[in-house]
Design a protein around this nucleic acid. Sequence first.
DNA 1: GCCAACGTTGGC
DNA 2: GCCAACGTTGGC
Length: 147
Amino acid sequence: MAKTQYWLIKSEPSVYAYAQLEKDGETEWTGIRNFEARNNLRAMRPGDLCLYYHSNEDKAVVAVAQVLTEAGPDSTAPGEDWASVRVGPVVALSAPVALATVKKTAALKDFPLITRSRLSVTPITAAHFKLILKLGGTALPKASQPG
DNA sequence: GCCAACGTTGGC
DNA sequence: GCCAACGTTGGC
C-alpha cells in the first residue's frame, strides 16, 4: 500500500459545501480547469486524505475528506483533457480553522492557502495536515487513519 | 464591489 | 519564445 498523501481541496460553500458531501456520501470532484490542479488530481490515490477548505464565504478549513478513486476524465468536460476523482466525507472539524488563524500560525506560513491561494488542489505535508487537525480540535476516526 | 494575484491566451 | 492583454479567483 502506497504511503498516504495529503491534499488541500477548495470549494465555495455556495457551490458545494462539506455538508453536501456528507449528505451525498460521495461526489465526483469536477470542474478543475487548471493544469497544475489537474496534475495534482492525477497524483491522488484512493485513501489519500484531503483538507476541505471553504473559500469566499467561510474562509476556513472545515473538514477532512478522503479520495475514493484514481483520477478519471471529468464528466463535466466531455472530450477534453481534464481530470476528476471521487471523494467522500471523513470528519468535520469541531472547530473550523479560519484563514486568519492559518496566517497567524508561524508553522503554517508555507501552507498553500497562503502561498498558492488561487490553486484549488494542492499537496500538503503530513505535518501541516496534522497541525490543522489539532487546531481544529479533531482526531481522525480510526477507520480513516493512514497506515 | 473592488482589486491584486496569477494562470492562460494570442500576437508578434 | 517572449510578453502584453485578458479572464478568473478569492480576500478584503
